[in-house]
Design a protein around this nucleic acid. Structure first.
Lengths: 196, 196
DNA sequence: ACTCGTTCTTGAACTAGATTAAGTTTTTTC
DNA sequence: GAAAAAACTTAATCTAGTTCAAGAACGAGT
């Protein structure tokens, strides 16, 4: 019988990267907490220290920055089975430049900096898990830089909607435009062109 | 007396992030090897598996991708005290999309995938070190995406040369242009404008 | 079902940066 | 130290994407 139904997606995710015994699940369950939040909930605010790390079970988060001209630039989305935090702020416990906010009603798992350190002390194997996770995220972001430099906005949109067709439906278009690095007006034009 | 003079910069670097006893240095010294290479040496080639991870003691590496139109797009530079590898290829042992090449005569420390796994087994604390390193690199690359989206080429160049004034002298301008995401011609114009 | 706020669309005028091509300067090599 | 190769500059033309402005469609709450 499973004592930690909410943790299941995370445990499965961890086991894709490192072995995890049943005893090791105990401290995990003690230190990580489920949290259900409505759309638009702000989890971490620019200017404040980011104290928590979030694992998305279901839903969607965005990490964005306030630009000089008063807009919001979306740097990252997190959907099912992604960890999200401001790594810099979280690790150094310095004020964050980013804001993390829900873009849909979402089911999360949350762990604080303090509890994560305790967890890593108790289950050192997880250092490896988190290393492998970040390595993937880093690789992905380098590839993203390559695409930003070498593809037109239209090509990036095409590729993105081929890779995440359902996702394009889920978030407002102006957020997609922000993430892809162009204006909502331009996205509108791209879509108009494709319709015929 | 120091038995491992070449490892000193790495050991100092590691100790900024995690404690490291003298006994733990022994496996480190046994598995990591110094390597001195001339300018333009190719360390890892697109299409082949990237078997090694490089720590730059002195010099400079670049990681780039061959674009469809036959150019080279520089994704990352590595200078003193940076690790460089194609994380995706190295970790999955799948063919790499990137090429890693020296841009100056360089002094490196090299470790193979196999030896790294052995090292991590012997000194598990290093999992944490490598995690913290990649987290920083990941944060930096997200911030870079923000700058690419929200600053003009000229602003990016200005900021880059303020942050790394010596570095701008060291590498050819067309590489800088490639890294910053515009053409060498445009960089030329920026510089002409600044001269007066 | 109506309303208010949010999101999406369209078009005209504009600009940062690309492209092409030729010429110049600097560096490397024999 | 001459010749070849690599790196940098300049200028004219062109285009992907921005900005601004105004209107249309959608959606959630009462």
């Amino acid at each position: 019988m499973d004592m930690t139904p909410q943790l299941t997606p995370l445990i499965q995710h961890i086991r894709k990267f490192v072995p995890l015994t049943d005893e090791e699940i105990t401290p995990l369950a003690a230190l990580i907490h489920p949290k259900t939040i409505p759309n638009k909930t702000i989890l971490s605010r620019a200017g404040e220290v980011c104290h928590e790390k979030y694992f998305v079970i279901k839903g969607c988060l965005r990490l964005f920055i306030h630009t000089d001209d008063g807009n919001e630039q979306i740097i990252q989305f997190a959907i099912d089975n992604w960890w999200m935090t401001d790594y810099m702020s979280f690790e150094m416990q310095k004020p964050s430049t980013f804001t993390i906010q829900a873009v849909e009603p979402s089911q999360l798992l949350v762990i604080t900096k303090m509890d994560l350190e305790e967890l890593l002390a108790k289950v050192p194997r997880l250092e490896r898990y988190f290393r492998l996770i970040v390595e993937r995220a880093y690789s992905a972001s380098l590839t993203r830089i390559h695409f930003i430099y070498n593809q037109s906005g239209e090509e990036r949109y095409g590729q993105f909607s081929r890779m995440f067709p359902e996702f394009v439906q889920r978030v407002p278009q102006y957020m997609l435009a922000s993430y892809l690095g162009f204006t909502p007006e331009f996205l509108s034009k791209i879509r108009a062109k494709r319709k015929d």
